[in-house]
Design a protein around this nucleic acid. Structure first.
Length: 471
RNA sequence: GUCCCCAUCGUCUAGCCUGGCCUAGGACAUUGCCCUUUCAAGGCAGUAACACGGGUUCAAAUCCCGUUGGGGACACCA
């Protein structure tokens, strides 16, 4: 059995799309499971749309999401000689011919055909002209078979039959000497010995165009698998108007790469009722026969839920690490530097049940940096009132009387006070909460005190009393 | 227009290949209740689907045909 070789072959014409990531993911999973080879190839033969920034975006995106490749990145523009020599071979073996039709003419004819409601295909007028050395601009066309059938035995969709009569004589080499997509993929997939071509559904009809080219060149035809598309909530192709589609946008929104991967794979693939998978499980359990055949709607709510799950269950230091850049972006770089990795992980533990994203987490974690805290105006106005000040003062005194902090001990002191004063728990808890965190919502009071430590707790309590007394 | 693909709760899906175990399961979202010092988290419960029409069969979500609906492709883009 030959070693599995798969590839991800994006064109660098913008950011890395989450649909692209999903395609890459299925390839990567299969490669890792089969102990095969996963390679990255940049399809940049459209020089007018390809940019270096986009190539960098692809690489950054792949790295962020943890998809490592074994070979590449290859750039098609570095491989021009290969396409030209293979095009020449097609010409020599009678599988291709020069076409001198002008692009504008073709365009006009296509429009005309469309207007008549006829299939807008190339009419093959240069096919039998036998032009051996074109005088001016000419494109090289592949002589597609005109009878019989091309059968694709798809990994995902099963057997699909195409009548060869629908085939066009596709352009193989543009008049500027650049290969077209349908030709360069074939040459590359063959030369890179790709065993399984797994790509989006939108390429399904390209497959019967490509197979005859493989055959004409004398190459083995790989197996194909076509992944269903990702749709937006209105069931049209996922695009900007449905929300963020760039993988890096999700990084910025505070998503964990593992959550992203889990969600994207699970969108269109299933393993019984299981929702959460480690990467290792994904690699072990992945199977083509459980890849969905129909398109799937991207559901940001479920992704958000999954991200929250990962925030709750990932190792805290791991989450803390991912949090650091976002803290820095939020202007907390000094605070971050003054704090150890361990205490940052402690903060993560403190707030992880409340944060669905790392961006949320930045908000939750903010009150625990620095000596004093910024009071939310509404919160202070409502809970830090002159009426409550004496009670807070009593609490402060009782705390001060204890030389060292203990969570259980201070909780007992607190409850004793509530009991002695005959007030409701909440009547004291909320003002204390505002004094300690500046807000009305926070983790449990005594967890907060534990993170703050004795001195800061007392300090903030005093500050709170000050604020309460002055109104 | 032509060709191709697809069709189970609002969404992701299990079940379909190898008909009976389906009174159609799980998850997200949503609703209610519980827990509770706040906000979350958590627990429990509920609402909610086999697109439609014909066959085949003792029996169809499952097999066959058609209809409808959705998506994709038809470039000197990839």
């Amino acid at each position: 059995m030959n070693q599995v070789r798969v590839r991800f072959a994006p064109s660098p014409t913008g950011f890395l799309h989450i649909g692209g990531v999903r395609t890459a993911l299925f390839n990567w999973l299969f490669a890792r499971q089969q102990q095969g080879v996963f390679l990255l190839r940049i399809e940049d033969t459209d020089q007018s749309r390809s940019t270096d920034e986009s190539i960098q975006a692809i690489i950054d995106g792949m790295k962020w999401v943890g998809l490592d490749w074994d070979e590449g990145p290859f750039r098609q523009t570095d491989r021009m000689d290969l396409y030209r020599s293979h095009a020449k071979k097609l010409l020599e073996t009678g599988h291709a011919y020069w076409c001198v039709c002008k692009a504008e003419e073709l365009e006009a004819r296509r429009k005309e055909a469309e207007a008549k409601g006829v299939s807008p295909r190339y009419d093959g007028r240069c096919r039998n002209l036998g032009i051996s050395r074109p005088a001016g601009d000419a494109a090289l066309r592949f002589k597609a078979p005109r009878e019989g059938q091309t059968v694709v035995d798809d990994l995902i969709k099963g057997k699909i039959e195409f009548d060869n009569t629908i085939l066009d004589d596709v352009i193989v080499l543009r008049s500027n000497g650049y290969p077209t997509y349908n030709f360069s993929v074939v040459v590359d997939d063959a030369l890179m010995r790709i065993t399984h071509v797994v790509r989006g559904d939108d390429h399904l009809t390209n497959t019967p165009r490509q197979i005859p080219i493989f055959e004409a060149l004398g190459f083995a035809v790989p197996r194909f698998g076509h992944l269903p598309m990702i749709l937006g909530s209105d069931k049209t192709r996922l695009s900007k108007r449905h929300g963020a589609t760039s993988i890096m946008a999700y990084k910025d929104m505070g998503y964990l790469p593992d959550a992203m991967v889990n969600y994207l794979v699970r969108l269109g693939w299933s393993h019984g009722d299981q929702e959460l998978f480690t990467r290792q499980e994904l690699i072990e359990k992945f199977a083509w026969d459980h890849v969905q055949t129909s398109a799937a709607v991207f559901n940001p709510d479920k992704l958000l839920w999954m991200n929250a799950e990962y925030i709750k269950t990932s190792p805290p230091h791991h989450v803390a690490q991912a949090l650091v850049p976002l803290l820095e972006q939020a202007g907390l770089q000094e605070a971050v530097e003054s704090v150890s990795g361990e205490s940052l992980a402690q903060l993560v533990v403190l707030v992880k049940e409340r944060a669905k994203t790392l961006v949320d987490m930045v908000h939750w974690v903010r009150p625990y940096f620095g000596e004093s805290v910024l009071f939310d105006r509404e919160a202070a106005k409502k809970f830090l009132t002159p009426t409550i000040a004496p009670l807070l003062q009593k609490l402060l005194s009782r705390f001060e009387a204890v030389p060292s902090f203990s969570k259980q001990g201070w909780e007992e002191i607190f409850k004793k006070l509530v009991e002695d004063e005959g007030v409701k728990m909440g009547a004291v808890a909320q003002p204390v909460r505002v004094a300690l965190t500046g807000r009305t919502a926070s983790p449990g009071l005594f967890e907060v005190m534990e993170v703050l430590g004795r001195e800061r707790t007392l300090f903030r309590l005093r500050k709170g009393i000050e604020r309460a007394s002055t109104g």
